[in-house]
Every structure is written in structure tokens, then in C-alpha cells.
């Protein structure tokens, strides 16, 4: 059965960088920061405390974009490819390949 689930113990690292979340309960969705200094970003993701962890890799083009005179510039990302391991994750659905200032869901993970 497919249902929107709350993850019991979520850990996410930005690989080669920082811990974004460590064993946090109660997450239904997360925002991952893509690396604006490189054309790919990798994230370690562990949704429960029991089973194995997964790695999700994003490959994309960076598109700097002007927002407004007051805000300046942000990076838009055009995602080419997403790789994932499938230890915990059952499947990955790409909803949108454009990462902009819109609050659109890019990726849906099925466990």
C-alpha cells in the first residue's frame, strides 16, 4: 500500500560535507541543498535506525538566475540524472527536473 509516511529516524549527510539531519523523527519531506560549486551532489540517507542506508546522487547543470534588485542571484538547477542505491529505498520518482524558487517537489522516494 502506498501512503505518505512519517520517517521514524531520519539521518542525512551531504557527502564530503556536513550532517544535515541526525536521527530526527517526524519528517515527511526534506529540502536538500544542491552544491552550487560542482555539477553533482551526493547525499547519504537513512530513514530508519534498523535497515541499511542509501546514497542518492544528483547530476545537474547550474543556472545562475537573477531574482530581483534586492535579492540578487540564486542558482537554478536543471537535473540531468539521479542515481540511487536501493537498500531501504524501493523506488525513486522524479517529479520535476527544474529546481527553481518554486516550492515544487523534485523527488518522491518510496520505501
Amino acid at each position: 500500500m502506498v501512503r505518505d509516511s512519517v520517517l521514524p529516524s531520519l539521518t542525512i549527510f551531504a557527502i564530503d560535507n556536513d550532517t544535515l539531519l541526525a536521527r530526527q523523527a517526524g519528517y515527511r519531506g526534506v529540502q536538500l541543498p544542491l552544491n552550487g560549486l560542482a555539477d553533482s551532489s551526493r547525499f547519504y540517507l537513512k530513514a530508519t535506525s534498523t535497515s541499511g542506508a542509501d546514497t542518492i546522487t544528483f547530476r545537474y547543470k547550474r543556472v545562475p538566475h537573477f531574482i530581483s534588485a534586492g535579492c540578487g542571484f540564486v542558482n537554478y538547477f536543471n537535473i540531468d540524472t539521479i542515481f540511487s542505491t536501493y537498500n531501504e529505498i524501493d523506488s525513486v520518482v522524479i517529479n520535476s527536473t527544474q529546481v527553481t524558487t518554486d516550492n515544487a517537489t523534485t523527488l518522491t522516494l518510496f520505501f
Binding site: A14, N17, D18, L20, P33, N35, G36, L37, A38, P64, G72, F73, V74, N75
Partner: peptide, 14 residues
Amino acid sequence: TYTVHDPIWGDYSS
């Protein structure tokens, strides 16, 4: 010059 501020990966300037 413009800078995209990013507290996690670092600022990007171009």
C-alpha cells in the same frame, strides 16, 4: 561580480 550565498557548500561567485 555576483555571489550566490550558500551556508552549506560555500559561496559561489562569478
